[in-house]
Design a protein around this nucleic acid. Structure first.
Lengths: 98, 98, 98, 98
DNA sequence: AAAAGGTGTTGCGTAC
DNA sequence: GTACGCAACACCTTTT
């Protein structure tokens, strides 16, 4: 189904919802509404996250560090260790952190 | 409050949670947990959004266009019109879209 | 100067470059051309960067680690140390990396 | 080739570039230097782009619109037209822009 | 394996 | 001078 680009049919001049595509239009509308509802929720939560960081900052914590911590905690500890080991190895090869 | 970099105090060798900073540590833990909870919710919703787009696509709709539509609908119509007018003006000045 | 939204003047029907705004149009064109030229160069260089990473990867190096290395090298070493210290501090407060 | 995680060999205490990996280390160094050189160029050009936008703005042009214009010009005009047609179609189906 | 779209982060310009 | 908001950048996942 879906919408296909067509030359405007005779129904258009009636100003009604495009006839033959009526079903598709309704379907599309439902999809868009579902998406918008979800996006609103997502946006609200994103706002909440920001507020928590702001509150933490006002208490003297560093949001930037906190973000790194949160990211670290979502990762597999083993992965983190391996990555750190690799970084140290590369740094040594480049004569960094002598 | 918050955490400040300090020279290791006498408590550290006990391996305990840093003493005088105990309160701050608890505070930090609560902030991080709140954030993680919110991020989980956000992630779940993002997954839902993707699913709706996927379902719409399976019905023949173009997700890329749908995303633009959703974006347009979130904007103030008046703003959109003004911006479009400006774009047309600039395009004309550049001889585009002749 | 610049372009202002105006009701279409009488010059428009001649299909010529908008009259009274001719100077602004030329100016705009020069700005846009300068930008496009620069963007092309930038894009070309970005491609080169990707190619170097790809070549390194084909030699057995890990591009992800390399990117972190490059970023580290651009930073002030002192800043890097401070940040790491803070991360360790926060991790300890949260009982991470036990 | 590349670097593999290894226990530090006896060469390390000589303070020299890790022995058996010497070739890989040199290779890595060359890759990193090439990347850094390219990144510097890219950064310089990005600065130039910003300057042009700033200059244009000081002449009364709207940088935001200019950015959209530049983006439009990089796209295939045919693609742009098709996309616009689709958007109009979807908008009509949703009763937008009546 | 390559490409594209989405997401998160960082840096810049602006307004207060 | 500081804090906010926006826009470019880089990363990553997913798709073709």
């Amino acid at each position: 189904m879906g919408l296909e680009a067509t030359e405007a049919g005779p129904d258009e001049k009636a100003g009604e919802i495009v006839d033959g595509e009526g079903i598709a239009a309704e379907q599309l509308g439902r999809f868009v509404e579902r998406i918008e509802r979800l996006e609103e929720e997502k946006s609200a939560i994103a706002t909440n996250v920001k507020e928590v960081y702001a509150e933490a900052k006002s208490q003297g914590f560093d949001p930037k560090i906190m973000r790194k911590i949160v990211r670290l905690r979502t990762m597999d500890p083993h992965e983190v260790d391996e990555e750190e080991a690799m970084i140290h190895l590369y740094k040594k090869a480049l004569g960094m952190g002598a």
